[in-house]
Amino acid sequence: MGGAMALTLGALAYPSMLGVNTVSSDQTRIIAQTQWGPLTEGDRDFVVKVRAAGLWEYPLGQIGLQKGSSKGVLEASKHLVDGHSALDASCRKIAPMLNITLPNIASPQQEGFVTQLKAESGKQFDTDFANILRMTHGAIFNTIAKIRSTTKNSLVRALADQANDTVLDHMTVMEKTGLVDFDQTIFNQTTPPKLPSTDTTPPPPPAGQPQVVLTPPPNPTSTPLDLSGLGGGGSTGGAAPNPSPSAG
């Protein structure tokens, strides 16, 4: 991978690239007591992170299906569309139950990845597509594991299970393209620059704006969460006041 690619990734990479800033620096701070267990700052942010991921990776999957010039990239693109449509449905299902406000567009940083790849074609597109998406999925993988092992909220735990399976699948299909430069990608994944919160925070949706829905492909292989065995219902009783995803 050339120097131009390294500079591009270095300018955009950030380990919490699927997330938003928190109201408090303490991710364990409880912001609500719900019938599914306490909801922490980290739990809330995680739900928003998963939603934000789909808002830029799903359209990139659609772009990859149109512009990909290799079998591996075309296959990876199918996985992005399939996996993120199901994850997004799960986020939209549990967010109102936990009184969490979801964004309708990704962060400026995430939109920067989309803008970059829209302008590319051929081998350059395939290479940058595989490396950017391997980097972003690798960056969030450890976050998912931490949430899954520490959350006391059963809805967040179920979402973490689904996200873990999806992200692992997406990392794997990116690697199978044969285009991933592991040295550069892992370097950018683990030693990112510090970016201002305005770059890494998806804006809250305007009041009354319809919620964006990521439509599943015609023959989906991934399915949203089945919450029937988790107890409770759709009530938001006991949840926190509506927390904005842009809270800093």
Rank of each mutant, 00 (worst) to 15 (best):
G2T: 12
G3I: 12
G3P: 00
A6R: 05
L7I: 06
L7K: 05
G10M: 04
A11D: 08
L12V: 06
L12G: 02
P15M: 11
M17Y: 04
M17H: 06
L18S: 00
V20S: 12
V23P: 02
S25F: 00
D26R: 11
D26K: 09
D26Y: 03
Q35W: 01
G42E: 12
V47W: 05
A52P: 00
G54H: 05
L55S: 09
W56K: 01
Y58T: 03
P59K: 13
P59M: 14
L60T: 07
G64C: 04
G64L: 04
L65Y: 04
L65F: 03
L65M: 08
S69E: 08
S69C: 13
S70G: 06
K71N: 04
K71I: 10
G72D: 06
V73S: 01
V73P: 02
L74P: 02
E75C: 00
K78A: 10
D82T: 12
G83A: 15
G83L: 09
H84M: 02
A86T: 05
D88Q: 02
A89E: 07
C91V: 15
R92P: 11
I94V: 14
P96Y: 15
M97V: 15
M97A: 13
L98F: 10
L102T: 07
I105N: 06
A106E: 04
P108V: 10
Q110P: 01
F113E: 03
V114Q: 01
T115S: 15
Q116I: 13
L117C: 04
L117W: 05
L117R: 02
S121W: 00
G122W: 00
F125D: 01
D128T: 08
N131Q: 07
I132T: 03
M135E: 12
H137I: 12
H137A: 13
A139P: 03
I147E: 02
I147D: 03
T151E: 11
N153P: 01
N153I: 11
V156T: 10
M171L: 15
E175I: 11
T177V: 09
T177Y: 11
G178Y: 05
D181C: 09
N188E: 13
Q189W: 12
T191E: 08
P192D: 14
P193W: 11
K194R: 12
S197I: 07
T198E: 10
D199T: 09
T201N: 06
P202A: 15
P204K: 13
P206G: 05
A207W: 00
A207V: 09
P210V: 14
Q211F: 10
V213W: 04
L214D: 00
T215P: 00
T215Y: 00
P220A: 14
P220H: 12
S222A: 14
A240I: 10
P241R: 12
P245R: 08
P245M: 11
A247P: 02
